[in-house]
């Protein structure tokens, strides 16, 4: 299928596919691993309590099933999470932000600055230890998630936030003239 029905010369347009993307900080994988460790430790604690308190469950079959599901979930989280981490890349252009994410379902989000409502920089306790931050971009889209870029250096996240806010303010000023 060839795509040629646009009435303007599409070859002259800036191409998303030609943009060099920048991977997120490598320390974010450590953040992810610590988060998974804590999460699965809590789940293990919960499961153990249930098995200790419920006599009916104290048989090899039930324990094997629970252990099997636990290990399967753990492996899936770690494998998909790591694969997804390696795909997370972003690029900032003059008029938009591009963000690649996902491993099994690979997504490329393209967000024009002139559609952004606001943006937020978040720093969780584990992220803070590694000097990392998360930038969330909010548009008025009624469905779908807002775009969240994890694993940015704190200074970089703040700079991006400033850039986005400047762009939004510049657009608002233009509108008011």
């Amino acid at each position: 299928m060839s795509f040629s029905n646009l009435p303007i010369d599409t070859e002259g347009l800036p191409e998303v596919q030609a943009v060099p993307f920048k991977p997120i900080h490598s320390d974010y994988l450590k953040v992810l691993r610590i988060s998974w460790f804590i999460l699965f430790l809590i789940v293990l604690g919960g499961l153990s309590t249930i098995f200790i308190l419920t006599k009916k469950l104290q048989n090899p079959v039930a324990i094997s099933i629970a252990a099997g599901i636990y290990v399967l979930l753990l492996l899936t989280t770690v494998i998909i999470g790591t694969g997804s981490f390696r795909r997370k890349q972003y690029a900032v252009r003059e008029k938009d932000i591009l963000y690649k994410t996902g491993w099994i379902f690979q997504n490329l989000h393209m967000v024009p600055f002139n559609r952004l409502q606001h943006c937020v920089v978040n720093m969780g306790p584990i992220e803070r230890r590694f000097g990392l931050a998360t930038l969330s971009l909010y548009t008025a889209a009624s469905e779908g998630k807002d775009i969240t870029i994890h694993g940015l250096l704190q200074t970089e996240a703040e700079q991006l936030k400033e850039l986005v806010i400047q762009q939004i303010q510049a657009l608002n000023t233009d509108e008011n003239i």
Binding site: I104, N107, L108, H109, A141, S142, E143
Partner: peptide
């Protein structure tokens, strides 16, 4: 348009296909 999303599963990637989702304030 609010933002644009191109989504590819591993199968779609192998076949050179993708799903284009255009998000608006009234739905996608």
């Amino acid at each position: 348009i609010q933002y644009v999303q191109v989504r590819q599963s591993l199968y779609q990637k192998r076949k050179g296909l993708a799903t284009l989702i255009i998000h608006t304030a009234g739905g996608r």
